[in-house]
Write a protein that binds this DNA or RNA. Structure first.
Lengths: 352, 352
DNA sequence: ATGAAAGCGCTAACAC
DNA sequence: GTGTTAGCGCTTTCAT
């Protein structure tokens, strides 16, 4: 059933003790090159590979790292996962992926069970709430942890972020430079770190341009809620409507695109945070702030592996660059935006 | 460092032997309810959880299943992964995700190392080539395997597919019903099972309508290659151009959308295989064949767990339903398509 | 530089 | 119904 070739077999064939064979496998320098070579020959001949469970049982460390995200199917997290897996696998680690589904309780539960497995390290996209200190040591002195996309407020660990405020500031400043003074901000709950940061960048851009912050232009849907017409309409059809919109997350961006197209108001300038496929196939093509999720994953994995290998230096926070991608929708000038308040209905027919 | 509480501690506290405690944990019915209760109390009191490595070492089975896909970040595979993880976790299994990156050699390598870990089961989206029999027993009699999206030709295992030919047939028949007689088929290499099947469905739909199959209307890009103008132009700008296009995979769909919009030929009818975000925000909204990737993942995981639990029944092939989603682009009638052969250039400006 | 013995935490045999 | 013994495959003492 399972491979029967053990370290003992290798040792026997090589004419050494099991321990010596073990030393060779673990690159212990205290072995004669001659015997080491003999052992290696035996390893090849028998096609031996160490039993990871026996090893983990002994060492207390699984050759696996874990990634916990809200949702695996979210394109952003999927790209993060791919980056993590690439780096992990190159270093001989497997990647265990788990999703917490937006529930902090479940996140806790998932992390706990992963720790029981004595994973070597954990990459976490923290959920809505902060991750409290569990029963088992996490972070410095315990199982290495790296936070991605959002920081862990209760735990000082390596963190990989983009400069959300700066990126958002750039995007909004870009809109202002195109003559816009009434710019709507859309996103989900400010309970989320990234939304808070991006809102801060939005405010700062307005301030620097001498524009007043108008709370009525900020439309926040509830967590995971969709942007519906209740939030959207007042911005676009109110007495003093916006000429530009800034969407602070990908899900919201999809909603806005749908709504703008639905009511035929693609004349309104629009920039979204996070790139998406078909952004440049839309009419007009959508300008976005692009973040490199895969790079974030790779970077996080590199930090993690450094810790796994014993690095004890102070936790660091890495800010990765974002790119503003001008495609058209963000370059619409304010004076080009019509002042009409008409609205059409979108039809959805599903014949067959 | 790691939790020090072992089964022995539990047994001691409960005043029983380690084996009895073990029996309780494994729900062995041969334990008095009374002692079982005492053991459970001890487990709770000590917050005991079994050491998975010790268990795996003993039983030769890791409490993990693995998923191997081409690319984790592909939306389809990401959704499959989410489905698998949901079911696996509910059953107490972790999900190890690995990507094979389109290389059969690497796929083999990845699967081999997963088997070394004595994973309980494997869900595989087979790569371009077939998966040959490795050194270790796979499938019936060995480590349970389930193939998703594409079958394994060398190994008779449970398989979860959609009826690609049927779905494709429906889509093309839909176009024919809208008056189209010159329908282009686009996709990547026929080395890929799904493309072959979808092409077969396309041919069958033509046949049934009494339309001749015209090879010049089939444009296949190389594997992972993009559909470029070399393939696209002849279909649209040739002497006898198409009035409709059918794209047989998601990557190609994105390309076609971009190209159609780029040359301003959104008057051509279009249906894509696989749904995508913003499909209904495009102008016109894109009609698609939708497959439920998450359901495919869940179904595969259920089949796998059944095998893991000892089911020895003959391998089954499950065909999941697809849905045709009519949004507009697939409902354009042939006579509405203009015969112009003009072409405009798409501009891409990235200021800032 | 190498080996012998012990044991990581658990469960499969076989007692009782 | 429950306990005892042994050992999964490896690495950690501690000798030599």
């Amino acid at each position: 059933m399972r491979s029967a070739v053990t370290l003992k077999d290798v040792a026997q064939l090589a004419g050494v003790s099991a321990k010596t064979a073990s030393r060779v496998i673990n690159d212990d320098p205290a072995v004669t090159e001659k015997t080491a070579a003999r052992v290696r020959t035996a390893i090849d001949a028998l096609a031996y590979t160490p039993n990871p469970h026996a090893r983990s049982l002994r060492t207390g460390r699984d050759q696996a790292v874990a990634l916990v995200v809200d949702s695996i199917s979210d394109p952003f997290f999927a790209a993060v996962a791919e980056g993590v897996e690439q780096v992990a696998r190159e270093a001989g680690f497997f990647l265990i992926v788990a999703h917490a589904g937006d529930s902090p309780a479940r996140e806790r539960e998932v992390v706990d069970s992963l720790l029981h497995r004595s994973i070597s390290g954990l990459i976490l996209v923290p959920s809505l709430l902060n991750f409290g200190s569990g029963r088992r040591p996490l972070g410095p002195g315990g199982v290495p942890v790296v936070a991605v996309d959002r920081p862990l407020e209760n735990l000082d660990v390596d963190t990989v972020l983009v400069d959300n405020a700066l990126a958002s500031h750039q995007a909004v400043a870009h809109l202002i430079a195109h003559g816009h003074t009434r710019i709507g901000f859309l996103g989900n709950t400010v309970a989320r770190f990234t939304v808070r940061e991006r809102l801060a960048g939005y405010r700062r851009a307005l301030e620097e341009a001498g524009l007043a912050f108008d709370e009525s232009l900020v439309a926040l849907s509830s967590y995971k809620g969709r942007v519906d017409e209740t939030l959207f309409d007042p911005l676009v059809h109110g007495p003093d409507p916006v000429t530009a919109l800034f969407s602070s997350d990908a899900v919201t961006t999809m909603d806005i695109v749908r709504l703008l197209h639905g009511v035929g108001r693609t004349d309104i300038a629009f920039v979204g945070f996070d790139d998406f496929v078909t952004a440049d196939s839309l009419v007009p093509p959508v300008s976005v702030v692009r973040q490199d999720a895969q790079l974030m994953g790779r970077t996080a994995a590199q930090l993690l592996l450094r810790r796994v290998n014993g690095d004890q230096s102070p936790p660091q926070r890495i800010m990765l660059d974002t790119t503003f991608v001008a495609r058209g929708s963000g370059e619409i000038r304010a004076r080009e935006v019509s002042r009409r308040s008409m609205r059409s209905n979108k039809e959805e027919d599903n014949d067959r």
